[in-house]
């Protein structure tokens, strides 16, 4: 790890003015310190924002305003998250370990880097780590790589589970910068790659995520699930995952939400699928048609064609589970495909 200057910010203004082009914001540190240890990033200054007053979860208009420093474990246990946004809790609890969730922050989860093994190897060409150097993942080991929204410049996926659920719930990221506040929808916060590079950074170096806003889920509160396929049932990143939420009245879907994880450089909101589900009865046939729409345009970025089939199946299963209703208590293995309570 390179040497750096450590600054603890007591106010948001102090944090922004301490920010430099080659500095980094330290929150929970679980991804930042890891990347510094393996030499992927080497910031010359760390600005510690753990003391900023961003630790609260406030209710407003049926929704929530979540401080960027709220730790993953606290968010997953919050009574309103459990009762009205259960797919957020299930996504959080399906990720990392209890130790990491106690340290990792909400803002940091959004800002975490891809787990592409070529990004993580400083000796490999990587347009995301070093623009213009190429992409070593193409032709390499691509099990964790994209099937949607990728280009020859970058085939990495965003690894977050939380962001997939947040995107499904129409979450908004609130960002403070020297020129004031701006807001970006979760579903478009992470730029997709273009023909030549991995896409711009989601934040300027002097910008800081302050809150995540979750609007009222209305009638979807108890019909929401997250399902995650991974190589082992705990403490592993998604190969593919899906968050689904439904509002069902009189045997018809009033509104549907579907977002996929592990498939693109951002949580992939499947709006065409949602639109097709509106007005339909919540049947497996309708969910299968929706899943086809969700995967429309999907293409393997390497030896990962199986992910298209897997993502389609996981989307169907998440919709089936959402239609069946969220259980009062989350299962012992959150988001596991090995759940016996439905036919999916």
């Amino acid at each position: 790890m390179n040497l750096f200057e450590y600054t603890r910010a007591e106010t948001l203004d102090a944090a922004m003015s301490a920010a430099t082009q080659d500095g980094a914001i330290l929150a929970g540190g679980t991804n930042l310190l890891d990347l510094m240890k393996i030499g992927v990033i080497s910031p010359t200054r760390l600005i510690d924002i753990t003391r900023l007053p961003l630790h609260d979860i406030e209710e407003h208009d049926g929704g929530l305003l979540i401080g960027a420093m709220v730790r993953n474990a606290d968010l997953a246990r919050h009574p309103v998250i459990l009762s009205r946004f259960p797919a957020v809790a299930e996504a959080l609890l399906s990720g990392a370990s209890a130790q990491l969730r106690n340290a990792a922050s909400t803002g940091g989860n959004i800002m975490q880097q891809t787990r592409c093994s070529y990004f993580q190897d400083p000796l490999s060409p990587c347009n995301r780590r070093e623009p213009g150097s190429g992409c070593a993942a193409i032709g390499g080991e691509t099990r964790n790589h994209a099937i949607l929204g990728w280009t020859e410049a970058c085939i990495a996926t965003h690894p977050s589970d939380l962001c997939v659920a947040l995107a499904a719930y129409d979450a908004v990221v609130e960002i403070a910068g020297p020129d004031g506040l701006r807001e970006v929808p979760m579903e478009s916060f992470h730029p997709l790659p273009d023909a030549n590079d991995a896409g711009p950074a989601p934040l300027q170096s002097d910008e800081i995520i302050t809150h995540i806003r979750l609007p009222d889920p209305g009638g979807m509160a108890r019909n929401a699930r997250y399902v995650k396929l991974r190589e082992r049932t705990s403490f592993a990143f998604a190969i593919v995952s899906a968050a689904a939420a439904l509002e069902i009245q009189d045997g018809r879907i009033v509104q549907a939400r579907l977002a996929l994880g592990g498939v693109a450089a951002r949580p992939w909101r499947a709006r065409a699928a949602e639109k097709a589900l509106a007005g339909q009865p919540p049947t497996e046939e309708a969910f299968a048609r929706a899943a086809d729409l969700a995967l429309e345009g999907a293409a393997p970025s390497g030896d990962n064609r199986a992910k298209i089939t897997l993502a389609r199946r996981i989307a169907i299963r998440a919709l089936i589970r959402a239609a069946a209703g969220t259980p009062d208590r989350l299962p012992a293995l959150p988001a596991s495909v090995f759940e016996g309570d439905c036919n999916g």
Binding site: L26, G29, I38, A98, Q99, N102, A103
Partner: peptide, 27 residues
């Protein structure tokens, strides 16, 4: 592992378990 993957470094901070290898001491 020194990378937050194995849990051998688990300690309690203010009663909560964390990986001390990924905890910057000054923070």
């Amino acid at each position: 592992c020194d990378r937050g993957q194995c849990g051998a470094c688990t300690v309690l901070i203010d009663g909560r378990r964390i990986n001390s290898c990924l905890a910057l001491a000054l923070s």
